[in-house]
C-alpha cells in the first residue's frame, strides 16, 4: 500500500516536473510546477514530515506560484515561438544529465543503508509540529532570527527594485 502510494506520487512529481521543462506556454509550466509541488508534499507525508508538507503547499504551491502567475500576467507573456533547436545545447544538457544520473546511481548503491526500509517510530502518532518547533526555537534560535532579517532585507530590496524612477 505504502509502496503503491509512493509510486503514484513519485511519478506525479516527476511527470509534472518534466512538464515544466517541456511545455511552451509559461502558464502551463507554472500550473505544472504547482502539481509537481503538491506531489512532493504528498511524498513528505509518506516520510511522516507533516509540518514540512503543509509548509510546502502553503509557501510553494500557494504563495510562490501565485507570485509566478502574477508576473506572467504582468509581463503578458505569450507562448514561445519555435526557435531553432541548438544541437550543442541539447548535447551538453544530455551529457550533464547522463553524468549526473550515473554518479547518483553509483553513490546511492554504495550507501550501506540504501536498501533499508523506514524504521518504526517509537509512538504511532509523533507530534512532529511540536518537535520541529522545539528544534527551531531551542537549537536554531539564532539562525531563525537571521532568517527574519533576511526576509526583511528581501522585502526592502523588492520595493527598491520595483520602484519606478520619477522623471
Amino acid at each position: 500500500m505504502q509502496l503503491a502510494l509512493f509510486w503514484v506520487f513519485a511519478i506525479l512529481t516527476l511527470l509534472f516536473g518534466a512538464g515544466v521543462v517541456v511545455f511552451r506556454s509559461p502558464v502551463s509550466s507554472a500550473m505544472s510546477l504547482v502539481m509537481s509541488f503538491v506531489g512532493l508534499a504528498a511524498l513528505f507525508v509518506t516520510l511522516d514530515a507533516f509540518f514540512i508538507a503543509v509548509v510546502q503547499v502553503l509557501v510553494y504551491a500557494g504563495a510562490v506560484m501565485v507570485l509566478f502567475l502574477f508576473i506572467i500576467m504582468l509581463l503578458d507573456l505569450r507562448t514561445e515561438g519555435r526557435r531553432p533547436v541548438k544541437l550543442a545545447a541539447w548535447a551538453g544538457g544530455g551529457m550533464v544529465l547522463v553524468g549526473f544520473l550515473s554518479a547518483l546511481t553509483k553513490v546511492v548503491f554504495s550507501l550501506p543503508e540504501a536498501a533499508q526500509t523506514k524504521p518504526d517510530l517509537p509512538l504511532p502518532g509523533v507530534n512532529d509540529v511540536a518537535q520541529v518547533g522545539f528544534a527551531l526555537f531551542r537549537n536554531f534560535n539564532l539562525p531563525f532570527q537571521i532568517i527574519g532579517v533576511l526576509l526583511l532585507v528581501a522585502t526592502i530590496g523588492v520595493v527598491v527594485l520595483s520602484r519606478r524612477e520619477l522623471k
Binding site: 551538453g92 540504501a114 526500509t117
Partner: peptide, 24 residues
Amino acid sequence: MPTLAHYLFVSGGLFAIGLLGVLL
C-alpha cells in the same frame, strides 16, 4: 515499503529535470 534509495532516486530525477530546464 519504499527504501531510502527510492526517495534518493526521485530526488535525483527531480534535480536532473530542474538542471535540464536551466540548461535548455
